[in-house]
């Protein structure tokens, strides 16, 4: 049973490693927003199509008074 002299310190070290990993993630702010993260994994990373419209064309778009066609 002398293996206990090795296995218990090893087990404790593993626990300590887990705690350190958790502390790192807390410091990195990973626990600040628990709401959005669970959705974010479901989105694909496909970027928006197209030449992103320049700000000016967005501008033109926002005037609602253009009659359609």
């Amino acid at each position: 049973m002398s293996v206990l002299y090795v296995s218990i310190p090893v087990a404790l070290l593993m626990a300590a490693a887990a705690v350190v990993a958790f502390l790192w993630s807390v410091r990195a702010g990973q626990f600040e927003d628990l709401e959005s993260a669970r959705y974010r994994v479901l989105f694909d990373d496909r970027p928006a199509r197209t030449p992103p419209p320049s700000t000016s064309s967005v501008e033109a778009n926002r005037v609602p008074e253009n009659p359609p066609r």
Partner: peptide, 23 residues
């Protein structure tokens, strides 16, 4: 969240956007 985080591809010059849904 999804739509707003696409902002960098809509407006040039926006580098990063992170939405916090809870708040």
């Amino acid at each position: 969240v999804w739509l707003i985080e696409r902002l960098p591809s809509i407006v040039p010059g926006v580098v990063d956007v992170r939405v916090d849904l809870a708040r």
